[in-house]
Every structure is written in structure tokens, then in C-alpha cells.
Simulated scan of single mutants.
Amino acid sequence: MSTDSDSDHPTIFDTTTCIRKGLCPVSSIRNKDDPLESHSLYFEQHGTGPEKIIFIMGLNSSSFAWEWQVEYFPQIADYSVLVFDNRGVGNSGAPRGPYTTSGMAEDAIALLNYVGWTEHRDLHVVGVSLGGMIAQELASRIPERIISLTLGVTTAGGWPWSNLPPWKGLSTLARLTFISDPEVKIPMILEMAFPVEWLDSKAEDDTQGRTNREIITVVYRRRIQLTRPQKFVGHVSQMVAGLTHYVSPDRLRQISKNIPKILILTGDDDHLVRPSGSVHLKEHMPEAEFVQWEKTGHAIHMQHVKRFNGLLERVFAEGKQHAPSSD
């Protein structure tokens, strides 16, 4: 079933696994009288399995960044996948800002309710970067619906200045704000999101002998061609959401107690979110599993696709095992 025509919203994903796509009318569901909340969320649902996964993307990136996860999980009979564009990016609306991670989490809840994913202990949540911040807020609001929570390359936040990226990431983000030419933007994005050593290495399993940089450049070029240009208000407002994000140690401990399985995943060469943010999460989420990969940058789900997807499968299975049958 589709709520909007494919021609209105061209997709990067495999259309053969798509069972529903379109716009979720967040404003009508939540508060139609508030002009600040006048927006809809673009979403796609892939696969028909009983295991439900919602993927939440990070700063100024559309759901197309989950390409290799949407390619993988719906092919396994157990899984259904829900991806969406956060407010302010892609095919979703860009209401007046600034945005907050709590408001963006409320968007995700409206979408989950809209597609009928409302059952008890029926949901695997995966968020990276800003998406991991949104996932924390989501887990504070609907913990009883979540089986597993994966927090990738993210932070609990704090004072706005403590949420600033390292200098390389901050300076690159500032320059990208005013650059529209994809051929100028892509090299900057790559060196911000991936380790240079990895980019210049030969890609595994590539029959053409290309480097990772060559392959990822093609991926980003195609993604940009199919993604609606981001409005300035969306770009800045999402950045404000990241800078103002904060989940207290008490709230982190509560999330940790309430969700059967939590994974905290980070790299060691991240120019956008310091790995110390993940260490802080683990300090206040004692039940969570902490994993750090060496020579790994911010785009962890793209740099190590097979490893990332395999880790998620294990986390999903352990979440089911840990969830009390009478919970």
C-alpha cells in the first residue's frame, strides 16, 4: 500500500520489498492548531516479518543513508523495517525551528502509531548520531514498546558548547552550509565521516578493484541526486537540536533498567561525535553493552556494513531472549 505516488517521491531503496511509503501527517495527529508543528514525515516500510526495526538517521541526512540496512534486513523473513526522514530533511516537512530531540522523538512516536507499530515489547530501535539522541528520548517515552535499543556514535549531551563536534567536524559542517555543488561537497563529507586511511584502501569484495573512496563517492552522488535539497531552516534547526540535547544520568539509568537489551556502539576516529560521549552513556547505563571499533569513523554503519548488520542481528536476538515473557 502506498499513500503517495512513487513519482512524487523517488526512492533509493528496492521497490520490491516496499509495502508502504508516503507522508505521515504529524500535524494532524498531534497538534493541528500549532503553526510551529505544521509538517509531515516521509517514511518507507519494507518487509513483512514479525521483528520490527525502526532506523533513525542523524544530522541533516535523509533515510536514504540506511540504504545497506534496508537492502539487508527485509530479505530476511523475520524482519520488517521502518525508515523515515526526520523533520527538516529529505521529503519531510521543515517547520519553523529551532528543533529539539524531544520534539523529533514525538514525531517518531506519531509515525509508529500511524503505521500501527504499537504493541508491547515489539520494537527494535536503531539510532546513529543525532538519531541516537532522538532514540534516547524515544526510549524515555515508550520503553515498554521497545525490545532492543542501539545507540550508535552518539551522546547524552550537556551544555551546548560541550555538544560541539571536534574542530574538523565543526569547521566542515560550517563550510558545507554554504556549498551546493555536490562535487565539492562530497569529498568534504567523506573526510569528515570516514577515516582517510580507510577511504584510500582497496574495498573488500569489489571486483573492479576500486578504493572505498571511489565506491562511497558514487553512493553519495546518487543519494544527493534523489534527495530533495535541504532548506536552510531545516539544516540549522537540526543542528540546534543536536547542540541542545541532554539526557540526565538519572534518565539514562532509567532507560537502562527498562529496556531488555541496549547496545552502545562507537568508533575511535570520529570527527562529529566524540567517543567519550559513548563512554559517558555506558557509565550511566550499567546494563548496556559497550562496543568500540578501531580505525572507525562516524559513518559506522556504512564503513562496516556486514559487521554492523551482523551485530544488529545479535542485539535483536538477545533483546528477545532478555525480555521477560510476562513483561
Rank of each mutant, 00 (worst) to 15 (best):
N258I: 00
M104N: 07
E313P: 02
F84I: 01
I76Y: 09
I134A: 06
H235N: 10
A193W: 11
F84C: 11
G157S: 06
G103S: 07
T118M: 09
Q75Y: 07
L41V: 01
F194G: 07
F290C: 03
S256D: 13
E289W: 05
D200T: 06
S237K: 05
V115S: 06
I56R: 07
W167I: 13
F316D: 09
A288R: 03
S129R: 08
F55A: 15
G103H: 05
I146Q: 13
K261H: 12
A174S: 14
M239I: 04
L312V: 07
I179T: 04
G22V: 00
V233D: 13
V236N: 12
Q208I: 03
R251I: 02
P143Q: 06
F55M: 14
G127S: 05
I142F: 08
H322N: 15
R314P: 00
H304R: 14
P229R: 12
T154D: 12
Q136R: 03
S129G: 05
G297L: 08
I179R: 06
G152A: 10
M285E: 09
Q136M: 07
E137M: 05
L149N: 13
T16N: 13
V83R: 03
N91I: 00
H9F: 13
N212A: 13
W68P: 07
M285Q: 08
A94T: 02
H120P: 00
Y79R: 09
P50N: 12
D14V: 00
T244D: 13
K295M: 03
Y79K: 07
S129E: 09
E318S: 10
P249Q: 10
V70C: 06
H46T: 10
P165S: 12
C18T: 15
S38L: 01
P143I: 00
L138N: 11
R96W: 03
R251D: 02
M188Y: 11
E144Q: 11
T155A: 05
S276V: 09
W66N: 09
L272F: 14
T217Q: 08
L199V: 02
T154H: 13
I53H: 14
D181M: 01
G319I: 02
P229A: 14
S237N: 04
G93P: 04
T211F: 08
G47R: 02
D34S: 11
D200F: 04
G22I: 00
A110G: 09
Q208G: 11
G90S: 11
D327Q: 12
H298M: 02
W161P: 04
K306I: 06
H235P: 01
G49Q: 04
P182Q: 07
L170M: 14
F55N: 15
N212W: 01
F194D: 05
N31T: 07
G277C: 04
Y99R: 08
S40L: 00
A139V: 00
Y246A: 10
N258T: 01
A323R: 07
N86T: 01
V89L: 06
W293M: 04
V219I: 04
M239C: 11
K261F: 04
C24V: 08
T17C: 05
P143C: 08
L199H: 11
G88E: 12
L23S: 13
S62D: 03
R121C: 01
H235R: 10
I300N: 10
D33S: 13
A317G: 08
Q292I: 00
E144H: 15
E119V: 00
